[in-house]
Design a protein around this nucleic acid. Structure first.
Length: 557
RNA sequence: GCGCCUCUAGCUCAAUGGCAGAGCAACGGACUCUUAAUCCGCAGGUUCCGGGUUCGAAUCCCGGGGGGCGCACCA
């Protein structure tokens, strides 16, 4: 929008090349008055000759380093030769009139050889050049997409021609020209001016194959992003997913809050935390494994609807579905129960899919998944009955449930009670075969230390999990708000921990004290954002939806 | 943590015990409608690191490192 008023400037296109000096030419004397002499020795600016210094450092040299240096030195010397002509290779700003996508939207349906008479200023990175002597084609990529630059070299002033002559793939440039369509029908900007905005000193990956080695894609994500269109697609989806869900929550009067990441005791889930140290207080702290307990304290404080989208940290295994730091959305809503949680979860996921992909059907390893609501809601014990051929219940004697586990080939450990064993059957037998989307409801109290028990059955909770393609995407429940019961569950867990169960939820007496001020009936949900993005972007590694995934230090060779 | 696979030019990949190669990128040149432009020419290597076997190792063996996948834990 900001471009429309400045795009024409009342100049006849045919006159532009001859009558109007380009920006570079205007800039040139200003810099030239300081002169290349004047810029030499300016602090912080790499100068001509720096190449020599770099290459002359024998200690830093390896064979491949020499090769990089050769390509890089070539680019440095091009940049420096522009400086010698009085052209600033790092100008401070550029007035873009349109993004490439805006131009396509305005002029995308013109026939071949059309001219618009509209002068525009575009900016981006050069990703491809096709030279024909006095006519050069280049592809300019900006955040919105690509557009072709059609460059009659004779149109350019001396400075512009120099910039073109010394250009490399990867350079950022700003360009001025008329929007036209080439004879072969490609929407183009026919340049009258070309300005270097920033020089790329390192060579780009293969322009056709891109960057494929996973390690470098993760370590140097910026290169992955600039070289691989699909990577830009995936993260575009990610950003839209997060903002779509935020929009839904804000529209439903939830407040976005921030709670501690550094915690005295990591609670709200069962996981091994990362531990760090606060020098000022001389205490060890854990990085949070979930924001749950703090968010409920905010509901107790009177913020009736709160949510947080943030990073959780779990010091556990790393694989295609688990990252040590991952993003979760948690939302808590006073006066609701777990059925409200299911409704909210459904609205959030559907909005994310609609905004980010404009689709509802997605390909997964297990087959196509249709997210069109409403999603079925099924009772865990009913599903178990179908799979095991017999009714199991958390109140059943442990030995009975153990024998069911043996029949189903489910391994178990001694401290586990009937509830945990039933959950294990679900996790190992049912879950791997579920395509979904489906809400599984009614989990045993034993595996749900923070969830309210059912009115009619004290061994089960009003809790759900959202399952898609054999994985848990969301989890939610009617929050346990009875202080004595919460304390008792914590104590039970502590006892289990004392008996060697590493998977017990730690007691948090500050949270129990908070509950004593009164938590209203509350519905809470948590959604794994990374996994949701994986589903919607149809990628199968969590690293591919995290910009900078955790890796070991780079090998020093 | 265990098992399997992998690492060769800036990038993508060949070469399986016998002279380390191609495409793209770069460099020099031709070219006013290309879009993986084309054509001619030229250059580019510690084959991840260290040891061993061999007349000879990118290739086989041992050890180490990075990465990927699978199993276990976990969401």
């Amino acid at each position: 929008m900001y471009g429309h008023t400045r795009s024409r400037q009342g100049i006849e296109p045919s006159l532009v090349a001859f009558a109007v000096p380009c920006h570079s030419c205007i800039i040139a004397p200003a810099i030239g008055s300081v002169g290349s002499k004047g810029t030499i020795g300016r602090p912080g600016i790499p100068m001509k000759g720096a190449v020599v210094t770099d290459v002359a450092n024998p200690e830093a040299e390896t064979g491949s380093q020499r090769s990089v240096d050769a390509l890089s030195a070539e680019r440095r010397s091009k940049r420096d030769s522009l400086r010698d002509k009085g052209i600033d290779p790092y100008p401070s700003r550029f007035d873009r009139s349109h993004t490439n996508a805006e131009l396509r939207k305005r002029h995308g349906d013109l026939p071949a050889d059309a001219r618009t008479g509209e002068i525009v200023q575009v900016a981006g990175r050069i990703t491809s050049v096709r030279g024909h002597g006095k006519l050069v084609f280049a592809t300019l990529q900006d955040v919105s997409g690509s557009i072709q630059l059609l460059i009659p070299v004779s149109n350019l002033c001396e400075a512009g021609a120099a910039v073109l002559d010394k250009s490399d793939l990867g350079d950022w440039v700003g360009a001025t020209g008329e929007v036209i369509v080439s004879k072969r029908g490609e929407l183009s900007v026919e340049l009258t001016e070309l300005q270097l905005l920033s020089k790329a000193l390192r060579p780009l990956p293969d322009k056709w194959h891109g960057l494929s080695e996973a390690e470098m894609r993760y370590r140097q994500r910026e290169v992955d992003l600039l070289a691989n269109e699909d990577t830009r697609r995936v993260f575009g989806i990610r950003f839209k997913v997060v903002s779509a869900m935020r929009d839904v929550l804000v529209a439903e009067d939830f407040l976005e809050v921030e709670t501690p990441i550094l915690q005295l005791q990591a609670g709200g889930a069962i996981a091994r935390p990362f531990v760090t140290h606060a020098n000022a207080l001389n205490i060890d702290l854990s990085l949070r494994i979930a924001p749950e307990l703090y968010l409920k304290r905010l509901v107790i404080g009177g913020f009736e609807r709160v949510f947080e989208i943030g990073r959780n940290f779990r010091n556990e295994g790393v694989d295609t579905r688990h990252s040590p730091e991952f993003t979760a959305l948690e939302a808590y809503r006073a006066f609701g129960d777990y059925t409200d949680g299911m409704g909210l979860t459904e609205r959030l996921v559907v909005a994310a899919a609609r905004v980010a992909t404009e689709r509802m059907t997605f390909t997964t390893a297990g087959g196509p998944v249709d997210l069109t609501p409403p999603w079925p809601r099924q009772e865990l014990l009913g599903l178990i009955e179908e799979a095991a051929g017999r009714r199991l219940h958390p109140s059943d004697p442990v030995d009975d449930v153990r024998s069911a586990c043996r029949d189903l080939g489910v391994e178990f450990e001694d401290p586990w009670g009937s509830g945990r064993l039933i959950f294990e059957i679900y996790d190992k037998v049912l879950l791997p075969n579920m395509l979904g989307p489906v809400f599984v409801c009614g989990f045993p109290v034993e595996v749900s230390p923070l969830a309210r028990h059912q009115l009619t059955d004290e061994t089960l909770t009003d809790r759900f999990e959202l399952v898609v393609d054999a994985k848990e995407y969301a989890n939610g429940y009617s929050e346990l708000n009875i202080p004595e019961e919460q304390e008792a569950r914590f104590r039970g867990a502590s006892a289990a921990a004392a008996m060697g169960d590493l998977e017990a939820h730690p007691s948090d007496m500050a949270f129990v004290r908070a509950l004593e001020y009164g938590l209203p009936p509350t519905s809470g949900i948590g959604i794994g954002v990374d996994r949701l993005v994986m589903l919607l972007a149809e990628v199968d590694a969590i690293r591919d939806v995290i910009l900078f995934p955790m890796l070991r230090p780079e090998s020093q060779g």
